[in-house]
Design a protein around this nucleic acid. Sequence first.
DNA 1: ATTATTAATGCAACTAAGTTGCAAATATAA
DNA 2: TTATATTTGCAACTTAGTTGCATTAATAAT
Lengths: 126, 126
Amino acid sequence: MGIIRKTQSVALLLDEFNTNSGAISVTTLNKRLNSNLNKSTIYRVLDKLEDDGVLHSFLGDNGIKWYAKCEGCSHDNHKDIHPHFQCVVCGKVDCLNVDIVVPKIPNREINSTEILIKGKCETCLN
Amino acid sequence: MGIIRKTQSVALLLDEFNTNSGAISVTTLNKRLNSNLNKSTIYRVLDKLEDDGVLHSFLGDNGIKWYAKCEGCSHDNHKDIHPHFQCVVCGKVDCLNVDIVVPKIPNREINSTEILIKGKCETCLN
DNA sequence: ATTATTAATGCAACTAAGTTGCAAATATAA
DNA sequence: TTATATTTGCAACTTAGTTGCATTAATAAT
Ligand SMILES: [Zn+2]
Ligand SMILES: [Zn+2]
Ligand SMILES: [Zn+2]
Ligand SMILES: [Zn+2]
């Protein structure tokens, strides 16, 4: 079930995503907001925002959970699927607007594909 | 640093990979071997086997760590990179001998790519 | 505006994966 | 057989994430 009431917690979390480009890890959100929000609340609100199609989540390096804003998703049509790029230098993670073709696999049915590309981001290249 | 002594622990762990096809999660290894091996030992031996190019590791669903045998890798040349497939029904994970082309990304340097494909495996298709 | 209803929150306690320091055990070299 | 250095078990710890429940607060009803 998604968000029902427009609470302070929801506003605070959405603000993080509106004032930052790129994805934000749950650990970062916890560090930034722990004076205002309990970690249970953070996990629960993020989960609901994902359910509503406002955010999407994925796993970054070391299996840490990241969230980023969706574009054009809703509860019913939650198809913001794309690869993610994590900089090995600064740790920043971005959504990539790139199509990667996954070939059909014999005798298997593909439901989804999670792609994490690691390398150096624009600012860390030089 | 890799394996130096041929210990009981190494033999027990290697045996798991020799008698099973596909990848094995660390949680499964811990459950199977906890009467014979301490979990610290399991983590440490797996880490060394990976360093030696005997096994490779990757993250499956929910960020759980999996290991599988390498083919033709060594400590110096550890390039057993390929996508992995996890069955959403039975949870089994396999290495895929498939090439997926990742296009160049403008202003970014790509070091590596982790691809996890989820779907139904051969035995769970029907 | 006041009250009632129910979702959302904080808190504390918990689970599970993974790590670490150190003493004891064991594989290998001498 | 003894010496040495690696490996192991253990216990204690860290961190991400979850859960039950009483309290708080947003919304609906009056
Ligand atoms: Zn960077
Ligand atoms: Zn994204
Ligand atoms: Zn299956
Ligand atoms: Zn593999």
